[in-house]
Simulated assay, not measured.
Amino acid sequence: MNCMAAWHAWAEKHKADIVMMGGPLGKTKKVSPTGIEDISNALGAFTVVRAASPEEAAKMFENHPHFAIFPGDSVEVMPVLAIPGT
């Protein structure tokens, strides 16, 4: 199975928990009180998933095809928090 077919198979397996497929990210602009500048970061793409905990979300990405496409790379998992006062 090629890398993209494996990626699509992963998405199909987890489609009930994928809230937003997301996609690749472009170049970064940093906006601060001093202005706008080009910067670099390690983010290459994003996907929003639904899980009972960050640990459960992380388990969804074990053996993800991303690792075959980008050897030595990783996936970072972080919760989306509620906006205070809403």
Rank of each mutant, 00 (worst) to 15 (best):
63 N>I: 07
37 E>K: 03
40 S>M: 14
80 V>W: 07
68 A>D: 13
13 K>L: 05
44 G>M: 07
84 P>I: 11
35 G>M: 01
68 A>W: 02
81 L>Y: 13
22 G>I: 10
61 F>V: 06
80 V>A: 00
79 P>H: 07
59 K>A: 15
78 M>E: 13
55 E>D: 11
50 R>Q: 10
26 G>Y: 05
50 R>M: 10
15 K>D: 00
37 E>P: 08
16 A>N: 10
77 V>E: 15
30 K>S: 05
40 S>P: 06
5 A>C: 07
21 M>Q: 05
13 K>W: 11
85 G>Y: 10
59 K>I: 07
52 A>S: 13
13 K>E: 09
85 G>A: 15
36 I>N: 15
77 V>M: 08
65 P>Q: 03
17 D>L: 03
15 K>C: 06
58 A>W: 00
8 H>L: 12
76 E>Q: 14
74 S>T: 00
43 L>A: 02
41 N>E: 03
84 P>R: 05
86 T>V: 10
12 E>I: 01
10 W>R: 12
82 A>D: 09
81 L>S: 15
20 M>R: 13
24 P>T: 04
40 S>G: 12
56 E>C: 07
78 M>V: 04
30 K>H: 02
50 R>T: 06
74 S>K: 14
74 S>V: 01
2 N>D: 15
54 P>C: 11
13 K>Y: 09
33 P>A: 04
48 V>C: 11
